[in-house]
Simulated scan of single mutants.
Amino acid sequence: MIIGLPKETKDNEFRVGMSPGTVHTLTNQGHLVRVQTGAGIGSAFSDDDYRSAGADIVFNADDAWSAQLVVKVKEPTEPEYRYLRQELILFTYLHLASNKSLVDVLLATGTTGIAYETVQTASGELPLLAPMSEVAGRMATQIGATYLLKTSGGRGILMSGVPGVAPANVVILGAGIVGANAARVAVGMGAQVTVLDVNHNRLKYLDDIYRGQLLTRMSDGLNIRELVFQADLVIGAILIPGGRAPWLITKEMLADMRKGSVIVDVAVDQGGCVETTHPTTHSHPVYEVDGVLHYCVTNMPGAVPRTSTFALNNQTATYVVKLANEGLNAVRQERTLQHGLNTYRGYVTHPAVAEAFGLTYTNPLQALQ
């Protein structure tokens, strides 16, 4: 199979879809890999690294995209829409539930879109979303600490406090992978941490792990309001697999939050769990509403690309090789990849994407017949 690795085009996105190690595995199995020149520079991989792995280096995006399978990190940006076509299998993060324009293009062109974030095992795990959730969760706390500085527009709060002065009050909405990793760093920095979730087992797990170093609360409207109003930093870590995140913080609630407090909405890729969330970039990461700073960058792990690319490839490589070796038969035969299939030849093949936009859902196996 011909596999394309284009350079990412999203603002300050320095990750790359495949490491030289993944490319080497593919070329050793007889596949042709076309790598756009400079695709790996942001992650400290040179063109020579890819050449040594057996790749062909191509000098424009057109050549990288003219492949049977294209492997990326982030969803195509508008300038890349022209490359989408029926013969293409696109394997990347898509986050379609908050991106109607991309849904429309994928359906109109008949592109096969397999989304990392909805590839799901029989046990319910999301193996290709997990590594970036780990990175984003840990980054969320670090970023929140930065924007709490007065020089960054925040309240002027030190996360750990000092003897005789209280630490920052950190509220984390969601106890999944993002929330657990955000809590790990926040507790390590000495903050006062409260985690909310509707899943009692997740709260019990964190309570057992931290043994009183953080607080857990059930996520309901009253608890959210009470805790958010007391918070210096709120981290949005809500996930509805493949679907749009619910609004847990409404616009009217912001007026009662502490001025100079910070919201880091990691759920922004799925529309955000704050009503006033809208996507931002690494170039312009924050904005203020009612005195509350919002950080809503859609590709947070792109700021630590070396770590992120290795972490992502550790999980995606197996599936890339399977798709290269078997094509769409890999999807037909493996339930895990069927969950990942979001669009195919004009069909919407993931229920959460269909529900988000009132579209007709078609079972993946039915569509693939």
Rank of each mutant, 00 (worst) to 15 (best):
E288M: 10
M300K: 04
E275G: 02
Q333A: 15
K259A: 07
A267Q: 10
E125K: 15
A97W: 06
I157R: 10
R335G: 00
A191P: 05
P20N: 01
L206W: 02
E117C: 06
Q142R: 15
A175G: 05
D104C: 03
V292E: 01
G144I: 13
T112M: 08
A130Y: 03
L233Y: 00
R225G: 03
I238H: 07
G243L: 11
V286L: 05
L359S: 09
H24L: 12
V103M: 05
Y116S: 04
R244W: 13
Y347C: 11
H339S: 08
V234M: 02
N28G: 14
A108R: 07
T25S: 07
G243H: 04
Y287D: 01
M189F: 15
L90F: 08
R155H: 09
G260Y: 05
T349I: 15
A61C: 06
G358L: 11
I263N: 09
F59K: 12
K72E: 03
A191Q: 08
F45T: 05
A168V: 09
G271E: 01
G153Y: 09
D208H: 07
F229Q: 10
S19A: 12
N60F: 01
S152N: 04
G42W: 06
R155E: 14
M132N: 10
N325K: 09
G358N: 08
L26D: 00
N12M: 13
I143P: 02
V71A: 06
N12C: 09
V195S: 00
D265F: 00
T250A: 03
L365K: 14
N99P: 04
R15A: 15
Q366K: 13
A367D: 10
V193H: 05
A354G: 07
G156F: 06
L206S: 02
L107F: 03
I177T: 13
K259P: 01
L128S: 01
H282K: 13
V304T: 04
E334H: 11
P364S: 13
G346N: 08
P241N: 11
Q142E: 14
K150S: 14
C296T: 12
Q369C: 08
L254P: 01
L69C: 08
R82D: 04
Q230K: 13
M300Q: 12
A191G: 06
P246V: 15
G54W: 09
P20I: 02
Y116L: 03
E326D: 12
V198L: 08
A180P: 02
Y361Q: 11
C296R: 06
Y93I: 07
D48C: 06
G174W: 13
T250L: 10
A237G: 03
T216K: 10
V264N: 03
A354Y: 00
G164F: 15
E125W: 02
K259F: 02
Y147H: 07
K7F: 02
G302H: 04
I89H: 01
D269Q: 12
S52F: 07
L26K: 05
H339N: 13
A255I: 03
R51Q: 08
P279F: 15
T336D: 05
F59V: 14
D11L: 06
T112F: 00
M300C: 09
G302I: 02
A39C: 06
